[in-house]
Amino acid sequence: MDYLYYLRQDKMPHIWCDGCGHGIILKSILRCVDKLGWDKNDIALVSGIGCSSRTPGYVDFNTLHTTHGRALAFATGLKIANPKLHVIVVSGDGDATAIGGNHFIHAARRNIDITMIIYNNYIYGMTGGQVSPTTPAHKKASTAPYGNPDEPFDISRLAQAAGATYVARSTVYHVGKMDNYIGNALQKTGFSVVEILTPCPTSYGRRNKEGNGVDMMRYQKENTIGIEKAKNMSAEALAGKIVTGVFVDKEQESYLNRYNEVIKKAQSGV
């Protein structure tokens, strides 16, 4: 496929560091869109603030770079106003689950017809490596110099509990799975979430002595366990492991379908 067809080539070079996984996710999104044959005019890519949230600037869709954490709120209005648009939100772990955590769970509860792709690098990359809601306990960050005292969120479990229609997790190393999950998510009606674990060598890897981007992806390769297999493993055996797979894949009425019923009721005078 022709990636350049989808990229705003005059916006290159991008801001991402060597070894950053964000660009791998971007390519996966483009492959999935290409496979679906969607018209660029019909796609809106919406983000908040962060390294991950710079993705829309590089892609030749309708692109909206909002405020930190609020992409889903803007995207909700946009989707409702123009349901023809395929609305995709990209977000970092901090953007999605710290400042934007409330919008995240409510988008899932509401089952709004949006696909959200979360670039989880366990850290606030853009601002220099502060601790995030997904930084594992005891890991170091610029604001957790003695190790993170908090427990992290499991984003996929959070999305599942909040009611999303489709939830899956992959790493950037497992490109086939990533493509598969993003492709599935884009085709779902309702709120679909794909969490992608992506290395941030600059702000996370270095401080935690996890090496460069390649080292961090090697770790992903060697420590990932499928969700089915993980079900039969003890908590000790799972320590330090990454569990990937499809957490939720169900059919449920989406927000827009529900609201169309509201309109019908209102107009029939019931």
Partner: peptide, 17 residues
């Protein structure tokens, strides 16, 4: 919406739509 921040964001998103 879930709060006023979201309500403002959704309003802007709808207008852009």
């Amino acid at each position: 919406m879930e709060d006023e921040i979201a309500a403002m964001g959704a309003t802007i998103g709808a207008s852009l739509g």
